[in-house]
């Protein structure tokens, strides 16, 4: 009696001390990954930005870094990204918001419990499958309506991409709408408003920063999406804002170059890191904005 098991305590202390370091390293590993991405993008694209005059990125109208007489108009790639993302948002924001309002304010709780995980499956579908669907099912269908639509079109890719990002809008949007306190809804119902009125006039503004963060994160998804556009929107960069044409996005360009032979240090190799750096900056901006909005929402509610 009275003696503490000293030896085993000493072992415990060792284990504890060791584990703290293992866990701390793991915690920082995610930072290491980000660091790896940033450093790789910077060092591998530096030669590219080194020998391409900065001005030409914006003044050239074509993006043909691999040609004998190269052009460096990154606008051609950005236009592709802009148009496909725009088309996707035209699908995902109205439809996703509508579904969020419906599921949060109208649907029976049991219906919601079943439907929400099913909707989330839409973003679990492998993107290469969506690409297949856009190219081989949707495009022929759209060609029946509009016969001049080329085999590869930003419209078709964008529409399918819109379906893919619906769950980002709906899921986050519904969460933030449902976290608006019931008391607030009751205040509006007590004045004689209907469900849709309460949803649009009280719940929607109350959940706005949450919804906005959902939209911004969905944009980030669409900007970074690769396989759907690489398969269905075409791989040739083209400076156009017409969704009925084919054009390469920033991501599709990276795929197109990667598919070929790609020696380390070649201009092709450098150019995809340059494109990647641009992509990283864009999505970083959207992600940070999205998370800032989300934090603001959590603090407000």
């Amino acid at each position: 009696m009275g003696t503490l098991p000293a030896n085993s305590r000493r072992l415990d202390k060792w284990v504890e001390g060791g584990m703290v370091w293992v866990l701390r390293f793991s915690g920082w590993a995610s930072v290491l990954v980000t660091f790896g991405i940033v450093v790789t993008l910077v060092t591998e694209s530096a030669p590219f930005f080194g020998h391409v005059p900065f001005r030409r990125l914006f003044t050239d109208t074509m993006w043909t870094p691999l040609f004998a007489e190269p052009q460096y108009g990154i606008g051609a790639l950005l236009a592709g990204t802009l148009v496909t993302t725009g088309v996707a948002l035209c699908v995902a924001i109205p439809l996703g918001t509508l579904l969020a309002i419906y599921l949060s304010e109208f649907a029976e709780p049991r219906f919601r419990e079943v439907v929400k995980p099913m909707l989330e499956l839409l973003s679990a579908v492998p993107t290469v499958v969506y690409g297949y669907f856009a190219l081989l099912t949707l495009t022929p269908l759209l060609q029946k309506i509009y016969p001049d639509l080329p085999q590869f079109s930003m419209l078709s890719a964008g529409l399918i991409m819109g379906i893919m990002i619906i769950p980002y809008v709906t899921s986050l949007g519904e969460d933030s709408m449902r976290s608006v306190p019931m008391l607030l809804r009751e205040g509006a119902f007590a004045l004689g408003d209907g469900k849709l009125g309460v949803a649009l006039r009280v719940v929607f503004p109350g959940a706005f920063s949450g919804l906005a963060s959902a939209y911004v994160l969905a944009i980030s998804r669409a900007v970074g999406e690769t396989m759907i556009v690489a398969i269905a929107a075409g791989l040739q960069p083209r400076f156009t804002l017409n969704p009925l044409e084919s054009a390469a996005t920033v991501t599709a360009f990276i795929v197109q170059v990667s598919l070929g032979d790609l020696p380390h240090g070649s201009i092709g190799y450098q150019s995809i890191f340059a494109a990647g750096a641009v992509l990283f900056l864009m999505t970083l901006g959207f992600n940070l904005a999205g998370h800032a909005l989300r934090r603001r929402f959590h603090r407000a509610s």
């Binding site: 995610s30 980000t34 790896g36 591998e44 999406e225 690769t226 970083l284």
Partner: peptide, 28 residues
Amino acid sequence: DFIEINIANLAGVPSILYGLMALGLFVY
């Protein structure tokens, strides 16, 4: 806080950028 923001951002980095990192870092 920094680690948390980093993880949140990492979750939104397009998958193709992980490919570029792996190409520069792991492959070469």
